[in-house]
Lab assay of single mutants.
Amino acid sequence: MMITLRKLPLAVAVAAGVMSAQAMAVDFHGYARSGIGWTGSGGEQQCFQTTGAQSKYRLGNECETYAELKLGQEVWKEGDKSFYFDTNVAYSVAQQNDWEATDPAFREANVQGKNLIEWLPGSTIWAGKRFYQRHDVHMIDFYYWDISGPGAGLENIDVGFGKLSLAATRSSEAGGSSSFASNNIYDYTNETANDVFDVRLAQMEINPGGTLELGVDYGRANLRDNYRLVDGASKDGWLFTAEHTQSVLKGFNKFVVQYATDSMTSQGKGLSQGSGVAFDNEKFAYNINNNGHMLRILDHGAISMGDNWDMMYVGMYQDINWDNDNGTKWWTVGIRPMYKWTPIMSTVMEIGYDNVESQRTGDKNNQYKITLAQQWQAGDSIWSRPAIRVFATYAKWDEKWGYDYTGNADNNANFGKAVPADFNGGSFGRGDSDEWTFGAQMEIWW
């Protein structure tokens, strides 16, 4: 008995050590931004985005507190085989008060198993909700290839000249389909599951310092038995992507060409959309029709120009041509140079221009935006974070068209359509004006 009692403290210590080691193995990653800002004409900070554009130049032009908190852990490992559990909870508030209630979004919860298939060394099996191989332009917060959501897949299969990845994910639309009631009355209240099937071939070395990635995505509306879509709904579509990445000037340049059809055009990033119906009456549900095509040509990157200068840049042309004439032509160009006074202090400027032409009206909206920021960051790279910055932003815009969301679809035949700025004596778009804002912001990723 005495021997047992003497061994007990040692056993407890060993158990505590094991539990401590396991606790220390938890990975904590994430992203956050928050700050305070004012508008020159009075009131809180207002942000500037061109009507019809899918993004905006973000430096000194973000008006919310946003965070993603990721917890993950390698829960099992034997040799080169392992299982990893990953989670991500995100939230966004308007940064107007101390207490701002919000419903967090559970954006990731997945398990990734590496090297589980003997004859596919280096590959990963995964299932669950996941940010899946996302491609974006940081300076405009624009995701041009992103099929994230609940799904499953097999990735990084070594095929000799590259890595092959296969995945299936889902994005549902509210009110996407109906069941038959009586007297030809349909009640569009059932969600429609939109499935996306993704095939990618990446890391193909085609020139010194250059790699090529090719991808095909097929999206479709997956209806339940005895349900139907509204007439004209976009049932399926394709997205084709080619991306060349070149190492240059201690950074990279990415050149991207994408072509999409029908349900893959509205978001243009790989998620299927077009079966959703915002109104019970299918007579007024025309606005979900996105049959047509999209072409996107994009070049972006980040480079170092000597010891003291870094720069991000982007140039993009996007043409969404829809059968219902509600598409757009959008082109944007911008730069973000950074001058480093010390390894932790810099001055950053961002200059961006957007131009969006309405397919329906032929009119154009444009905006110039310039931001000057003094910044303190954890390192001497344009990617170094955390960063604390004080900024001043000036924007000038001239908008000739907007979307008509007055009333509702039952009493407005133009609901959701592009109209000229002065349509029917109204005021659509943001008109011709300018404004400036100033404030302070922190940004961090880890």
Rank of each mutant, 00 (worst) to 15 (best):
V257L: 03
N97T: 15
K56N: 13
N289I: 09
Q133P: 15
E108G: 02
K329T: 00
D86A: 12
S41R: 09
V26A: 00
N281T: 11
E44D: 10
D299Y: 06
N97H: 11
L271R: 07
F142S: 15
G292S: 00
N115D: 11
I117S: 15
A285P: 14
T342K: 08
A109E: 14
T371N: 07
M24T: 02
N411K: 07
L295Q: 01
D103Y: 14
A409T: 02
G219S: 00
V248L: 07
K364R: 07
T347A: 03
V75M: 11
A421V: 01
D80N: 07
G209C: 07
G251R: 14
F131I: 01
Y339C: 01
D363A: 11
N424K: 14
D380A: 04
W397R: 09
K7T: 10
D299E: 03
I388N: 01
Y259H: 07
E78A: 10
S247N: 01
A13S: 08
A285G: 15
L71M: 12
Q133R: 10
S384P: 15
G379C: 15
T332S: 12
I388F: 14
Q203R: 10
Q359K: 13
W238R: 02
A109V: 07
T393S: 10
V356I: 04
V14A: 08
N308K: 02
G219V: 03
C47W: 08
D158Y: 15
N289S: 07
G429D: 08
E350G: 00
T189N: 13
S34P: 02
M311L: 09
F423S: 11
Q49H: 02
F48S: 14
G215V: 10
S346R: 05
T332N: 09
A233V: 03
G43C: 05
A23E: 08
G268D: 00
I351F: 10
D27E: 08
Y286C: 08
Y317S: 07
N289T: 07
N190I: 00
N289Y: 04
K340M: 00
K56I: 15
N115K: 13
A233T: 02
V12F: 11
D136A: 08
C47R: 12
D280Y: 12
A440D: 00
N324T: 09
V333G: 05
K254E: 00
L5Q: 04
N207K: 08
P337L: 00
G128D: 00
R389H: 00
N156S: 13
A181V: 06
Q374E: 07
A90V: 08
S182N: 00
A25D: 01
Y368F: 11
F106L: 14
G176A: 02
Q95H: 09
G379D: 06
A242T: 02
N424H: 03
S41N: 01
G149D: 01
G237C: 11
P337T: 06
E350D: 08
H138L: 00
N414I: 14
A167T: 02
G122D: 11
A16S: 03
G426C: 13
A278T: 03
Q359H: 06
G431V: 12
N424I: 12
T245I: 01
K254T: 01
V314M: 01
A13D: 06
T192P: 06
N308I: 01
A168V: 04
N61Y: 14
G35D: 01
V199A: 03
F415C: 13
E243D: 07
C63S: 11
F284L: 14
S178Y: 10
W376R: 01
L71F: 08
K77N: 09
V12L: 03
N412Y: 02
G210C: 05
T169P: 10
N408T: 09
S82I: 12
D299N: 03
N365K: 13
R58S: 09
L201V: 13
T4S: 13
G306C: 02
I206V: 14
T39I: 03
F428I: 14
A109S: 13
V248A: 14
G151C: 13
P208R: 06
T261A: 00
W330R: 03
A101T: 10
V277I: 02
G426V: 13
A373S: 10
V26I: 00
D404A: 08
D103V: 07
K250Q: 13
K269R: 05
F240I: 07
N411T: 14
G379S: 09
G40D: 04
E399V: 02
A440S: 12
H29Y: 03
Q374R: 00
Q133K: 06
A409V: 03
R170L: 13
T342R: 02
V248D: 01
A181T: 07
N290Y: 11
R336L: 06
N366S: 02
D27V: 06
N326S: 04
G30C: 03
I351N: 00
A109T: 08
N190Y: 02
